[in-house]
Write a protein that binds this DNA or RNA. Sequence first.
DNA 1: GAGTAGATCCTCT
DNA 2: GAGGATCTACTCA
Length: 201
Amino acid sequence: MKKLPLSFYQREDVLQIATELLGKVLTTKWNGVETSGRIVEVEAYAGVADRASHAYGGRITRRNEVMYADGGVAYVYLCYGIHHLFNVVTHYKNTPHAILIRGLEPLSGVDTMLERVKKNQADYSLTRGPGNLSKALGITTGHSGISLKSRELFMADDGIGFHKTAIAVSPRIGVDYAGNDALLPFRFYIKGNPFVSGKPK
DNA sequence: GAGTAGATCCTCT
DNA sequence: GAGGATCTACTCA
């Protein structure tokens, strides 16, 4: 398992990074308790020109300022007062690109995840959808801004991954308010994977 | 099975 | 003071 280098995140093409992120392994290790999963669904948010992005029009606030940092850090945000959404910041300083992790296939620490979500039995909803997966991995807004190469939270490549032909593209979810930008095909997922949110095909 | 309403709270205006 | 990068459960057919 190799941790992804900062050069992986610090590139200009957020869509390219998003597709390459599919199949990578996301691990959290709070207080020595490890949980991890393989990424099967992501969405790209392409900075100031993207109406669906928090950074649209160059807005910078205390909440989203971490998006303007150099690529390779986590951006965690609370939505609807209930759901924590985990994002990966990409590109370089002052360019607020981010990738939202929406779906994860559990690899290790499933028992811990179940405990966090208060379930007795593993089912697909455990790590399907951004709100659920953040909860399962124990990620909260307090983790916003930490490095993706830290000891507690990191992304890695275990050499398995998915083949390019397994990747499908679609418009993003839950961004109807963004007008035409809501139609952009910035969502990438693994075809047929049960941990992908939305309607199964 | 499909469609809809409700939960719930932090952040920005 | 309003609204949001969601999820779940419940209704109705």
